[in-house]
């Protein structure tokens, strides 16, 4: 499941479109090479796999560098007894960490913040009208946290939902960007997240070209936001293609 031999690891690296600019690593006031030797605008190789958990309706495993997550989707199944009638479906999300997920966290816990953000990111894409009176449960476990956890979780969850056959308007892809000094770095790792001046996380529907979720913290100038958004949009559409390929592969494999 985690490291199947022979599984291809597609890489993707977004390019800045429409503008020519000096390479950012020549920026004289910042002497920084990324811990894993990537370029500033280069994402980590993405390994995606559907069908990681046999007992779930749909599931996916995602590995971006050291960030490893599993998402299972259960349902649509009967809502909790206490719930009142609803003519649209419900979505229930939960994110938890393993005790060994990061070297500093120390204990495995439910992550309320990520649970609600995952919920917000997904609720707009799922066509809730297709499963009235029932609930779809999206449960995620972060096996190892290596940075950009939330965006990996969201992309992986949308893959799991697709694997479960839940109707969606589009696949959902998420990418984060960190701002350190004057540089923007896509898909930051934990070390970079620890010293960032600002973070930018965007989820979008690549085919519809719509942003469903956007969070910014730290200090940002408008040109920086423009640039980060362009980077994210680019990376999202590439990630979307990788996810689509992954789904195509899994269906063609099951047809055989």
């Amino acid at each position: 499941m985690a490291a199947k031999p022979g599984a291809a690891t597609p890489t993707y690296s977004p390019k800045l479109v429409g503008r020519s600019r000096l390479p950012i690593f020549k920026d004289s006031d910042l002497d920084w090479t990324r811990p894993d030797g990537r370029g500033f605008h280069q994402c980590r190789p993405a390994l995606l796999q559907t069908g990681a958990v046999s007992s779930a309706s749909g599931s996916a495993y995602a590995e971006f560098g050291n960030t490893k997550v599993i998402v299972s989707v259960f349902g649509p199944r009967e809502s909790k007894k206490a719930m009142t009638y609803s003519d649209v479906g419900r979505l229930n999300c939960n994110v938890s960490y393993t005790t060994f997920a990061s070297s500093t966290l120390g204990q495995g816990t439910d992550h309320k913040e990520y649970s609600s953000m995952l919920h917000q990111a997904l609720e707009g894409v799922i066509i809730m009208e297709t499963f009235p009176k029932t609930t779809v449960d999206v449960f995620a476990l972060v096996l190892e946290s290596g940075g950009s956890d939330l965006s990996v979780l969201i992309s992986c969850a949308s893959l799991a939902l697709a694997d479960a056959g839940i109707m969606m308007y589009d696949l959902i892809t998420a990418v984060s960007v960190s701002c350190i000094g004057k540089s923007l770095m896509i898909d930051p790792v934990t070390e970079e997240e620890g010293c960032e001046d600002g973070s930018f996380m965007m989820t979008c529907m690549p085919s519809r070209y719509e942003i469903t979720q956007l969070t910014i913290t730290g200090e940002w100038t408008t040109p920086n936001i423009n640039e980060a958004m362009q980077l994210c949009l680019d990376a999202c559409s590439k990630l979307g293609e990788i996810m689509r390929d992954c789904l195509k592969q899994s269906t063609s494999a099951s047809d055989e």
Binding site: S55, V71, T98
Partner: peptide
Amino acid sequence: PPICSPIVRP
């Protein structure tokens, strides 16, 4: 964890 089986809920 809840991911492993339909009978486990958060």
